[in-house]
């Protein structure tokens, strides 16, 4: 018998715990990415000498390098300089920073999509900069960005498996641990795959629907 049903049932609760950790990583990571990404996008747009260029380069650099290596850097390099958290926190920060680089790009196109007339109207009303950004530009920019954020959330959900390499005990690490201790890999890995699918497939359907709803009207 290749597939052992009893074994599969017995490990299912442990895998669900792993899934829960994965979900937490995803939610917190997305939150971090959404906020950081917005900050990066605005900083780039403000064209502050040096700072804006540095941010631009960082965004491109993060997008051009592997998440796994970034995770290793956070896990092995940073503690040498006195920065250290537990594995889970490190994982969330790494994946959040990684995705913020992508989100910054999404915000950028959202901000660019706001018609020039909106800026001009704000100037004509002598609105201060903070008010212009906060009440006029960003609300319009973010509206078009919502479905993309959804896509990245789902992507992050699947990518977070990489964090198992720095000892974060999420779904993938749980499955692997079960495999190596029981020498049965089929059940935990298949179940892990199915759990990923069970969450991400309906979620992406939902985002597709949102996408159609929020699609720009022009």
């Amino acid at each position: 018998m290749i597939w052992d049903n009893n074994f599969a049932v017995s490990i299912f609760p442990i895998l669900l715990q792993g899934l829960w950790v994965t979900v937490q990583i995803t939610l917190l990571g997305t939150l971090l990415a959404a906020v950081l990404g917005l900050v990066f996008a605005v900083l780039r747009r403000l064209a502050i000498p040096v700072l804006s260029q540095v941010v631009s380069f960082l965004v491109v650099f993060v997008r051009g390098t592997p998440l796994l290596v970034q995770a290793y850097v956070a896990f092995f390099v940073l503690p040498a300089y006195g920065v250290s958290f537990n594995a889970l926190t490190t994982g969330i920060v790494v994946i959040g920073v990684n995705y913020s680089a992508y989100m910054a790009e999404v915000y950028r196109s959202g901000i660019q999509g706001v018609p020039k007339g909106q800026w001009e109207a704000a100037t004509a009303l002598s609105l201060p900069g903070v008010r212009t950004w906060g009440r006029i530009i960003l609300p319009q920019a973010i509206r078009t960005v919502v479905p993309m954020l959804g896509n990245y959330l789902i992507q992050m959900f699947k990518d977070s498996a990489v964090l198992s390499a720095i000892t974060v005990v999420e779904l993938m690490a749980t499955a692997q641990a079960i495999g190596s201790s029981s020498f049965r890999y089929i059940e935990p890995l298949t179940l892990a795959a199915l759990l990923f699918l069970a969450v991400s497939y309906p979620a992406s359907r939902l985002v597709n629907r949102l996408e159609r709803r929020y699609a720009p009207q022009h």
């Binding site: 990518d159 993938m172 499955a175 890995l189 795959a193 990923f196 991400s200």
Partner: peptide
């Protein structure tokens, strides 16, 4: 819908 890492491990271990 599933992680690349899961797929790779599945091919390698399962």
């Amino acid at each position: 819908g599933t992680s690349l890492l899961v797929q790779m491990f599945w091919l390698f271990f399962a």
